[in-house]
């Protein structure tokens, strides 16, 4: 099997946009809800794009352009997007107008931009990409599903380049709904926010950030299934648990959501340092995209910011070489990803 590389990864988030400044100087939040920090869109979008596109679409197109510029890949073979809520802002505008004005007086722009697959469609139209185009909307594992599909397409030889994105926007009203069901907000830690991450995957290693070695997804795994999957994943990467540089989890400080992560680490990786990222990138359905983004840059830069470590196991003394990324949702959906630093990093 030929290896798959993450050639570039960019983000718009609670941190400085389109930048890795968070690795040295992260912006800290102590609020239950905050919107992402946008770049100056005028530098990236034409006036027509700027006025026509909703915020999530602007973010998607800007992050995509950024990874295109960094890699020189302008027309990837495939575009795969994960989104939990899709174009929420325009969906709300559309539904509010529907309730207020009736069915005959609806804005076509809001309607067109209110579906989940608008994002992947827009990316294809703007980049003139006519290949495989798909959107996954599976709550907390939406991004992971998109990445798994891309990885599989690479493995079976269907594609050589892919744009994989995780995108979500969070409106104040939807935040209140998610707060009501205890997903975010309330008295527990974590900042409910939005996601915009673009990865450019390729079979070429030049100037890449890291290798996407392997990944697996499981639904309601038994202990035995989880153990077997972990073994096969590590075998495929020719790794042992002890040889991992760290395990990056979706721990956020919210007890119920964190419990499966703690159990997983205790049971399978008690001697491996543990990392977290949601304290800087916030909570959202596609927050796991930031795990891949952050891990790729840590491997590329050869260091892990101190603020990412949690748990009793001290950091390794050598630069990170391999990271296992764990995302889970309600102890039902599990996603496991292994990333490896490139030679010379």
């Amino acid at each position: 099997m030929k290896p798959v590389y993450i050639q570039a990864a960019d983000q718009i988030s609670l941190q400085a946009p389109l930048s890795e400044a968070w690795m040295k100087d992260p912006i800290r939040y102590d609020v239950p809800y905050a919107r992402a920090v946008d770049p100056d869109f005028k530098q990236w979008l034409t006036p027509a794009e700027s006025r026509r596109l909703g915020k999530i679409l602007k973010r998607a197109w800007v992050t995509a352009q950024s990874v295109f510029r960094k890699t020189g890949v302008e027309h990837p073979d495939a575009i795969l997007v994960g989104t939990g809520l899709g174009c929420m802002e325009n969906t709300e505008r559309f539904l509010e107008a529907l309730c207020r004005d009736g069915e005959s007086l609806l804005s076509p722009t809001h309607f067109m931009q209110s579906t989940h697959n608008t994002i992947a469609s827009l990316l294809a139209l703007r980049s003139h990409t006519h290949g495989y185009n798909i959107t996954y909307s599976h709550k907390d594992v939406s991004f992971d599903q998109a990445l798994l599909d891309a990885w599989t397409q690479f493995r079976i030889g269907n594609i050589r380049t892919a744009l994989v994105g995780g995108y979500d926007e969070l409106t104040p009203s939807y935040f209140t709904l998610l707060e009501r069901i205890g997903y975010m907000g309330g008295s527990q830690p974590g900042t409910g926010s939005e996601t915009a991450v673009a990865l450019l995957l390729s079979m070429e290693a030049q100037q890449g950030l890291c290798e996407l070695v392997s990944m697996r997804m499981l639904y309601r795994p038994t202990e035995q299934a989880l153990q077997e999957t972990l073994h096969s994943l590590l075998d495929e990467a020719q790794l042992t648990p002890e040889s991992l540089s760290a395990v990056m989890t979706g721990v956020s400080g919210r007890e119920a959501q964190d419990a499966p992560y703690h159990r997983f680490i205790q049971q399978w990786f008690p001697e491996v340092p543990t990392l977290r990222y949601k304290q800087w990138f916030g909570l959202s359905y596609t927050a796991s995209a930031y795990a891949v983004y952050a891990a790729a840059h840590c491997l590329d830069q050869g260091f892990i910011p101190d603020g990412m470590y949690y748990g009793p196991t001290p950091p390794r003394s050598e630069p990170p070489q391999t990271l296992l990324l764990l995302n889970q949702s309600e102890d039902k959906e599990y996603s496991l990803i292994i990333l490896r630093a490139l030679c010379g990093h």
């Binding site: 609806l106 804005s107 076509p108 722009t109 067109m112």
Partner: peptide, 15 residues
């Protein structure tokens, strides 16, 4: 303006 704007203007006229 373009064709989508024309649709927006039709909605505006009625609303």
């Amino acid at each position: 303006l373009d064709s989508i704007d024309a649709l927006e203007l039709i909605v505006l006229m009625e609303k």
